[in-house]
């Protein structure tokens, strides 16, 4: 297991190229999984690909082969916006948590890859059920407090949708993390400006989001979630700000549907599966780099 706080601060060109190749394959996985069962959520999954790849292939100090529920001595990750399960399942498989071929069972009967992530079926990598929005930050705070009680210096990461922030529980959680000085937690918001019914600004505007988090006592960072170099920089900076008595949030600008030209620019692809022709057009934009499942 790597030593704590041993992440590389400078990333080589070769390393960025390799991560880009991984992103291309993960995006193919997402599209093929959703297409195969004609259900699931490609939009947010595609938008969060760089973040999830950076986290699982560069940032998390963890051992996928030795994954266990308690994760003592490991960094933890919680997906609060559980509908983007396709991107999570793909990076979990591609980082060695379970066989890549199992991606073919996504959303099918008797699968460990449920529509929304669950612990029920025992899929390695998943420590909490999610899907009903707004609950993940509380859970991440609890896990971070457990780490503190256990004298475990590893970190807890979480991801949340921006529409999801409309849930009141998120702000109850935000308040409590600051009050309890949960400074071993890095929450990230997928700030894509979209949700099911339209743009977040039309559905229920979030107002001045950085100011809101700051006023709740959080250390606030911003990054471009679709620029791998900036994602690595942002995550590195966030990590450097842990242990200072405040929880850290990264407001991550992304584009819903990133990587497939016709899936960007609106909320349309939040939860729509591509048909055969659309899948072909999409895959043509994404080289197969690591072999399709």
């Amino acid at each position: 297991m790597p030593a704590p706080n041993a992440a590389p601060s400078k990333v080589s060109r070769a390393s960025l190229d390799e991560l880009a190749r991984t992103c291309s394959q993960v995006r193919r996985d997402i599209l093929r999984m959703v297409h195969a069962v004609q259900s699931g959520h490609p939009g947010g999954s595609l938008g969060c690909t760089e973040f999830m790849v950076a986290l699982y292939f560069k940032v998390l100090r963890h051992d996928p082969k030795a994954w266990n529920m308690d994760g003592v001595g490991q960094d933890l990750f919680f997906l609060s916006n559980g509908h983007i399960s396709p991107v999570w399942y793909s990076v979990l498989a591609r980082s060695g948590h379970f066989p890549v071929k199992e991606l073919a069972t996504f959303r099918r009967l008797d699968s460990r890859l449920q529509g929304h992530p669950t612990t029920h079926e025992g899929l390695p990598g998943v420590r909490m059920a999610s899907g009903s929005l707004g609950q993940g930050l509380s859970v991440a705070i609890g896990a971070a407090l457990a780490k503190r009680l256990n004298g475990d210096t590893h970190l807890v990461y979480s991801l949340h949708g921006d529409g999801e922030l409309q849930e009141g529980q998120v702000w109850e959680a935000a308040m409590s993390a600051a009050a309890h000085k949960v400074d071993n937690l890095i929450a990230t918001v997928d700030w894509n400006g979209r949700q099911i019914d339209g743009d977040v600004d039309q559905v229920m505007p979030l107002g001045d989001l950085p100011a809101k988090w700051r006023s709740f006592g959080w250390d606030v960072l911003e990054m471009n979630g679709n620029d791998m170099a900036d994602v690595l920089r942002g995550l590195e900076e966030a990590r450097s700000r842990t242990g200072q008595g405040r929880p850290v949030v990264i407001l991550m600008r992304t584009e819903m549907g990133q990587g497939v030209d016709f899936m960007t620019g609106s909320h349309h692809w939040h939860g729509v599966a591509p048909n055969d022709a659309q899948l072909d057009r999409a895959l043509a934009q994404l080289p197969e780099t690591l072999g399709d499942y």
Partner: peptide, 8 residues
């Protein structure tokens, strides 16, 4: 509701 699974 089908594919969304048990959370829903």
């Amino acid at each position: 509701l089908g594919e969304d699974g048990a959370t829903h």
